[in-house]
Simulated scan of single mutants.
Amino acid sequence: MTWAPHVTVATIVERDNRFLMVYEDSDGKLVYNQPAGHLDPDETLHQAAIRETLEETGWTVKLTGVVGVNLYTAPSNGVTYLRTTFIGEALSHDPQRKLDTGIIEAVWLTYEELVARKDQLRSPMTLQIIDDYRAGRRFPLEVIG
């Protein structure tokens, strides 16, 4: 039997003490998450993070670092995700851009607002990786080949 985790990326973007998040429909449940998604064929992890952030939020970002590479097995379906979370700087926004299917809106939330919505987060990793970021966990982009 072959086991293969799903390769995903996410981006933490902070501006004015607020984090760029997506409010989305995930299997019929409305949740908050970082801009995130799957790696497409023939793209790098860096390219995937920039693309997913734009597709889900309308924001163009410049990647500045990496928070971490984490494994998460979803209890709902048993799928394991290998997620690389990048740090991004917001460069420009296209408010007319159509967002990915399932995305209701992109929102900027403070850490306190995220904690208050803990039960509405897509997974425990959503807040954990922000906690890692806030604790100063940073790696250079070059750590990811």
Rank of each mutant, 00 (worst) to 15 (best):
M1C: 09
T2D: 14
P5L: 06
H6M: 11
H6I: 13
T8F: 10
V9E: 05
T11E: 01
R15C: 07
D16F: 01
N17P: 02
F19R: 03
L20G: 00
V22H: 03
V22Q: 09
Y23N: 13
Y23G: 00
D25S: 13
G28L: 08
G28S: 06
K29C: 01
K29H: 12
L30G: 11
V31E: 14
A36Y: 00
G37M: 02
H38W: 07
P41W: 06
P41G: 05
T44K: 04
H46S: 04
A48F: 02
A49E: 09
I50D: 10
E52R: 09
T57P: 12
V61A: 00
L63H: 01
L63T: 01
V66W: 00
V67L: 09
V69S: 13
N70D: 15
Y72V: 03
S76V: 12
S76E: 15
S76Q: 13
N77Q: 09
N77L: 06
G78L: 04
L82T: 07
R83H: 00
R83V: 11
T84Y: 14
I87L: 12
A90Y: 00
L91V: 14
S92Y: 04
P95T: 08
P95M: 10
Q96R: 13
L99M: 10
D100I: 01
I103N: 05
A106W: 05
W108D: 07
Y111T: 01
Y111L: 10
E113M: 08
V115F: 03
Q120Y: 12
Q120T: 03
P124M: 07
P124V: 07
L127F: 00
D132F: 11
R134Q: 14
A135Y: 00
G136V: 10
G145E: 14
